[in-house]
Structure formats: C-alpha cells, structure tokens
Amino acid sequence: MDQRPAPTRQRTTLPDLLRRALRRPTRTTPPATGPTNPDAVVDCAVYVNGQRQPGRPHYTDAHTHSRRNRHSFVWLGLHDPTPAVMTAVGHTFGLDEFHITQALTDGHRPTLQRHDDVTLLVLRTAAYVEHTELTETSEVVDTGDVMIFIGDRFVVTVRHGAPGALTTVRQDLQQRRAILAEGPWAVAYAICARMVTQYLDVATHVETDLEQLEETVFARERTADIPHIYQLKREIVELKRAVLPAQAPLRTLATPPTDGPPPALRRWFTDVDGDLARAVDRVNAYDDLLNSILQTRLAQLAVEQNNDMRKIAAWAAIAATQTAVAGIYGMNFTHMPELHWRYGYGAALLLMATAALTLHRLFRRSGWL
C-alpha cells in the first residue's frame, strides 16, 4: 500500500498577502452625494419642458442628465472662472480651446460667432455708480461683459466684472415656462433683454447728471469746470462701447437665420432690438449734448478771458495818463511853462485825477469796466 506523503502546507508571508490584496478587485460604493461645484459656479440647473428640476447638481451630472431627455437642457452660470475650472467645464460641454481662451479674458466687443455646434454671444454689462456730485474723478458707469455659450442641450454663461448679475434673470425666466421651454435660446433672450433694460436705466441716470451739469454751466455762479465735463464724457464713451456694438448681434438674432433661435423666439429678439435702438438714440443724443455743453463752456472761458483782458487794458490806459503827466513835469527843464507856478503842483494832481475819472467813465459806458 502506497503511502503518499502528506502535502506540505506553504507558509504565507506578508509580501504574499500584499500582492494578493493588490490583485484582488475592490468594490467601491458611489458617494451618497455628488461632487461639489467650484466656487466660480454661481448656479447650475437642469430644465425639462421649461421647469427647473429640484436640486443644484454638479455640472457634469447635469450635463449627463440633460443628454437623456430631448426636452431638457442645463444652464451653468460662472463668474470669473479660473483656468482650471474653465478647462474642466469646456471638456464637459465640448467647448474647444478657442472658446476656453475667450471665456478666460474680459473686455470683449459684443459679437455673435458660431463654431461647429456652439454659438458664442458676447454682450457688455453696464451699471450706474451712485455719487453725490460730479467731480473730475467720479465713476459714473461701471461695465463688464457676459459670454453666452449656446449648444444643443446646454447654455453656459461666463460673467466678468461686478455689474450684470444674472440671478434675477434666472428667477424671472423660471416664472415664464412657455418661453423657457424653447430651450437654451430662451436663456439668451432673457439675458439680452436684461442687458438692454440696464442700458436704458443707466441712460436715465446719466440724463439726470447731464441736466445738473447743464444747470451749473449756465448758472450765474458757474461751478462746472472743464475736467468735470470731460470726466462725464469719458463715462458716456464707456457706455457707448457697450451699447452701440450690440446692435449687430441682436439684429442678426432678430432676422430669420439658418442657425439661431427658434421661430417662436425671434419676435422676442425683435422687441429687444427695438429697445436697444432706443438706448442707442439716447446715448448718442447725450454725447452730442455733452459736446455742446463742453463747447459752450469753452466759449464762456474765452469770453471771460476777453473781459479780463479788456479790464486790464482799461486800467492800463488810466495809469498811462498819470504816467504821462508825471513824466512831462518830471523832466526838470529850466524853461518849462508853469514850472515855477505857485499852484502848479495842485493843478498837476487835478489834471491827473480829471483824466483818470474821465477815462474810467468812458470805459464803464463802453462795457470795458
């Protein structure tokens, strides 16, 4: 009977246990809550048939959710994003390097561009800065910009600067489900409408400053100086840079294009374009009025300088008569009439006073004094 040797039991060492643990697949449980949005994210929401879905998901989860329903889209709002955040957002929503680069810089001119399946709409924001009085350093208009990236199932808004907050725009638009159901272009319309409304509000406040400046220029005691007028003109130029270039993109959106807003929203864009035309007319009128005020003030300064020169010339003529009389009788010639007259000194002073009073009266009558 064969006796087989008992199998020897191999001794397990610590390195063997580590190698087995590394080869063994580990099970990971998904977190109960999704990742948090970066600080640059103002708000993120998914809309289905014009209604906001509960919660504020991470933009990656929101984008995934919007792709599952053809009647949904995601609206991601960013404010001064960092390059890392904007790069991650761009990769999630399919934005190319050009879009990411544009979104990281501010000061863009209002424009409308289309690259592949993404439309880029850039608008300038404007806000009126309250001030007690206009000085040569007063800030009247504060501007920024907002960039709107519009895709098939998403809209990403990137805002630079303090003015132009979009929180109220989102809240108001969420109350208009019929318009919001039109998709991402409804967000573009709401932002355009709010920007144009702000242009008109700023123009109204600037008009008040112009009226006060006009009153000070034509008042009896003028307090408006050239630096004050020039400062307000610079602020109006800043407002013009925001308002005037916005005409081209809004007019393009109001006309029937091949790619753009749905037909149901074009009439709303037409209404916004009409309001923008009013803002453009008012800003241009204010600029022309300010040019007139500036020219008037320069003319007033020229007249005031001319009056000063006339007064100086009149007093110089009066002084010249005194100098002439004193110079003649100060020559000390031996044979001069009335040189040794007893009343010669008094007569000379009387002659000088009479000449001075006569010239003063003549100059006052002619308006020189």
Results as ranks from 00 to 15, higher is better:
254 A>I: 06
237 V>T: 11
169 V>S: 06
147 M>H: 12
200 L>Q: 06
239 L>K: 02
268 W>K: 07
154 F>N: 12
159 R>T: 13
254 A>G: 04
265 L>W: 13
248 A>C: 09
157 T>S: 07
174 Q>A: 09
250 L>Q: 03
187 V>A: 14
268 W>E: 15
215 E>H: 03
247 Q>M: 08
254 A>M: 04
192 C>L: 10
163 P>V: 05
186 A>C: 06
261 P>S: 02
164 G>A: 07
221 E>C: 00
258 T>S: 10
195 M>A: 13
236 I>E: 12
204 T>K: 08
241 R>G: 04
256 P>C: 12
148 I>E: 10
195 M>E: 10
204 T>I: 03
231 Q>L: 04
211 E>M: 01
152 D>A: 15
272 V>T: 03
253 L>Y: 03
153 R>Q: 15
179 I>L: 14
230 Y>N: 05
149 F>G: 14
201 D>T: 15
256 P>H: 12
223 T>F: 01
250 L>K: 01
234 R>P: 10
169 V>Q: 06
247 Q>S: 13
212 Q>N: 06
192 C>S: 15
221 E>T: 03
221 E>Q: 05
190 A>W: 02
242 A>D: 04
168 T>G: 11
236 I>C: 06
243 V>Y: 07
229 I>H: 03
224 A>K: 02
156 V>T: 08
205 H>G: 04
233 K>I: 07
269 F>C: 02
216 T>F: 00
233 K>D: 11
252 T>W: 05
266 R>P: 06
211 E>C: 03
259 D>Q: 05
252 T>C: 00
180 L>V: 11
170 R>L: 14
151 G>R: 06
211 E>W: 00
156 V>W: 04
171 Q>L: 07
193 A>W: 06
191 I>L: 10
193 A>T: 14
241 R>L: 04
165 A>K: 10
225 D>W: 00
266 R>I: 12
216 T>D: 09
231 Q>G: 01
227 P>I: 02
151 G>W: 05
262 P>L: 13
262 P>R: 14
194 R>W: 11
147 M>D: 14
246 A>L: 11
163 P>M: 05
216 T>C: 00
170 R>V: 04
265 L>C: 08
207 E>C: 00
165 A>H: 11
219 A>M: 02
235 E>H: 07
153 R>L: 09
208 T>F: 00
186 A>F: 11
183 G>H: 14
239 L>M: 10
189 Y>R: 08
189 Y>L: 13
251 R>V: 07
234 R>H: 15
249 P>E: 13
174 Q>L: 01
183 G>D: 12
182 E>D: 14
234 R>F: 00
226 I>A: 07
152 D>P: 06
243 V>D: 11
207 E>F: 00
212 Q>V: 09
268 W>V: 14
242 A>Y: 09
244 L>M: 15
200 L>T: 04
229 I>Y: 01
181 A>F: 07
238 E>D: 12
270 T>G: 13
227 P>H: 03
258 T>E: 13
185 W>Q: 03
209 D>Y: 04
175 Q>S: 04
190 A>G: 02
235 E>A: 14
185 W>K: 03
155 V>P: 11
153 R>T: 11
231 Q>E: 10
257 P>H: 11
168 T>I: 07
218 F>D: 01
241 R>P: 03
249 P>W: 00
209 D>L: 00
198 Q>I: 08
187 V>K: 08
153 R>W: 15
271 D>Q: 12
158 V>Q: 10
191 I>Q: 07
